[in-house]
Amino acid sequence: MSLIVKKVAQLITVFIFLYGIYIIVHGHLTPGGGFAGGAILAGAYILQILAFGRDPLHLKKKETGASISESISILTVLILAVVGLFIGTKVFFNNYLPSGKIGELVSAGTIPLYNILIGIEVAAALLTIFLALIIYKEEIE
């Protein structure tokens, strides 16, 4: 890609990334949350790859990392949910943390944690899908 595209992508990516994080951590207060924020995060990554990366080997490494972080975040969600089996009312997916005051950033018990993990999961999954399709295309050419 040309220098202009690279420079603009570099400048914009930071803001997109921050916006994604904002959407994720405010998931329990405003519309949005894990899925929407995660999709934005993945968008930032994909913009970077489109502007810079064309090296299949490098992409392959990135895909491995993405798929591992996807699995780990899903497992963490499951562990958080299973912990509910042992605390409080002893139910799967129990919200065992104190719920706090409505409207504050740190509130709503475990929901923000789920949001963050789902954000990572969605970003990693979208990135994996994108990279898998791209790597496959590179292999053809």
Binding site: T64, I68, S71, I74, L75, L78, A81, V91, F92
Partner: peptide
């Protein structure tokens, strides 16, 4: 309340995501 019922979903789901990590 019997806590065994969700295990039918938790166990295979967790295994499905453990395999790609440890399988490497």
């Amino acid at each position: 309340m019997n806590s065994l019922i969700p295990l039918f979903i938790i166990i295979p789901l967790a295994t499905a995501f453990v395999i790609p990590i440890i399988g490497k």
